[in-house]
Design a protein around this nucleic acid. Sequence first.
DNA 1: ACGACAATTATCCGTTTAGATGATATAATG
DNA 2: CATTATATCATCTAAACGGATAATTGTCGT
Lengths: 216, 216
Amino acid sequence: MIHIAIVEDSIDAREGFRYLLNLDPDIKVIQAFESAEPLLMQEELLNNIDVILMDIELPGMDGIEATHRIRRAYPDIDILILTIFEEQDKILRAIHAGATGYVLKNSDPTELVSQIKSIREGGSPISPHVARKLLEQMQKSNDQQRTPEDYQLTKREIEICIEIINGYTYREMAEHLNMAGSTAKRHILNVYKKLGVNSKVEFMKKVVDEGLFHIH
Amino acid sequence: MIHIAIVEDSIDAREGFRYLLNLDPDIKVIQAFESAEPLLMQEELLNNIDVILMDIELPGMDGIEATHRIRRAYPDIDILILTIFEEQDKILRAIHAGATGYVLKNSDPTELVSQIKSIREGGSPISPHVARKLLEQMQKSNDQQRTPEDYQLTKREIEICIEIINGYTYREMAEHLNMAGSTAKRHILNVYKKLGVNSKVEFMKKVVDEGLFHIH
DNA sequence: ACGACAATTATCCGTTTAGATGATATAATG
DNA sequence: CATTATATCATCTAAACGGATAATTGTCGT
């Protein structure tokens, strides 16, 4: 039996979902809310539900913020975003807030039950248009990735780059790599020329922008 | 009419998909291949198909590499990965290679037609288990994000931080913000104390690591 | 053998930083 | 009212940095 709470400000949608879901013998809608705050205060309820259907636009706290708070306090609850919004911005924020799925309200409502069941089986239902936005986001960030080879950095220069990224001074990196400070500097300046930058900070920026060297 | 090519090494699966898809009046399977290389050489074919169903494990070039090459040369072709693999690694590589969708072979085969049609309508069908892996990936990297507020940076200090990130010197940022260079410095050093760093480079590293300030 | 490049070191110069110290003014807090 | 935090400016020092120039060594390919 899957226990469900609904947070949805439109009474029609709210009661529609409640009715639809209760038709399934494996699902029980415990309570439906028109805003997030009342749900957040029901501690004993939150300890006994499995899935929350969450709208984004709500009076008071929005569904993304609510998702964030609930997931932090009750990591076992799965939250399925159910909304009309398909802006990349909202989608990403919802996912970062910890949403388990993101379904558009214009989807086939009869599929909602199978989507909820799929959540309990370890899946994350995502409407195709939402998924497209996600993929585009992931592909975009990967578009103009560069590598040290693209700039024809030499072995030694690459070592130096890593030292810079780790915040060392000329002297320190020279010690680590067994060379004179002046040599370390020579290499760095060559790297600057090759990358077209003029300082460590610009260098760092370029490294981050282009994903040169995988930091962390 | 949606024109389709299939790349799938198992003859049973290949002919099964071909049969299944040809049942739909809006879909026509132009050709089915058992490996990627023959498809890549059919230039005139590639100029006339809309969607490719692509397996990952193939004799010779794998489906991910094939996806990469096709997408680079024919960006208008949508590629739907259709595979048994649900490892995060393969999923991510396929997406970075430019896949438009990623469906598991154990999905309901009768849904394949609607998934292909959803692609042509700008969607990206993704099996729920695959989507879960994607969301987990996106959420993981977002775990220990910090904000300027977490370090109680003041308005002025935040302005200074942005100047640093943009690579300006004390003097330059002082001009931009209408203050003396010494004041700019004063602020920076305060920021360093609050963040626990000792130089611009360490500052940059922290900003990158913790996602303080959204660069770009 | 020659040239091109990588790697190494050094020196000089002016600028920029980090760090310390001190001072003033204003707003918020207790 | 006293205290604290913020914002402002100045001065000083030592270290680090960016830029230019020059020289030596080894390797690789032509």
